[in-house]
Amino acid sequence: MKDFIIRNKKIYLLISIFILLLIWQIASFFLSPLIVPSPVETAKIFLNFLSKKEFWLDIFVSFERGLLGFFLAVIIGTPLGFLMGLKEECEAFFHPLLVLTQTTPTVSWLILGWLWFGTGDGAAAVFIIFIIVIPFIMVNVMKGTKEVDSSLMEMAQVFNFSLRKKIFYLYIPQIFPYFMAGCSIASGLTWKGVAMAELLTARSGIGAAMGVARINLEIGQVFVWTAVLIFLGHGFSRLFKYIELSVTKKWR
């Protein structure tokens, strides 16, 4: 019965994708290829891209920027979130930083990043990703820290756990799922952010390539790049969930 339901869910997923493709195909039939290229045409462009060095180079450059910004946000956001979860004073102190990164429009950061870091080297894109990702890491690590089981903390107190033991055997395992959930959401946003930042501030990478495609009215290329971004965003999001589940599976 359970097997049947799972298979059923997958069938619905496939039907949904099929319908979306169908709508796309029908739309392209009625509209000019300059506005909506057909799925087949897009696939052709994609296959053509696969053999081009520039295609992979642009992906690599964007990938590098996204990863670097993400990594910096994790390195800085994790200890901050931990402190915020541990001490209310820290939470109050870093709260404005959180609000600032969460609510300031991305365009504002884009313009600032562009002014501060200039174009060409992609530093602005790294900066934007850092800003986009850090609140998710901070909030999730903070939540995870606050949710640490007080009955286990008491146990650790009675048996006189050292700080090292508390961190490795109490805090890290309990924060881990929250941390990974934060990474999962943030990684979905990272690749959108990279492309947007590159469109406005860089000369290389997926976003810059999309800018060129726009100028040349190569709408099919825009579609291909979009597909690449969807793949990256969704793929990374799933990857983090997968890692989280496979690590915690043993004890959950």
């Binding site: 009955s151 286990l152 146990m155 048996f159 055997y169 109490l170 395992p173 043993k250 004890w251 959950r252």
Partner: peptide
């Protein structure tokens, strides 16, 4: 002091 709590309070990940 050592303690046997009402619940086992074991670390689930160990």
């Amino acid at each position: 002091i050592s303690f046997i709590f009402q619940e086992a309070r074991l670390l689930p990940w160990k």
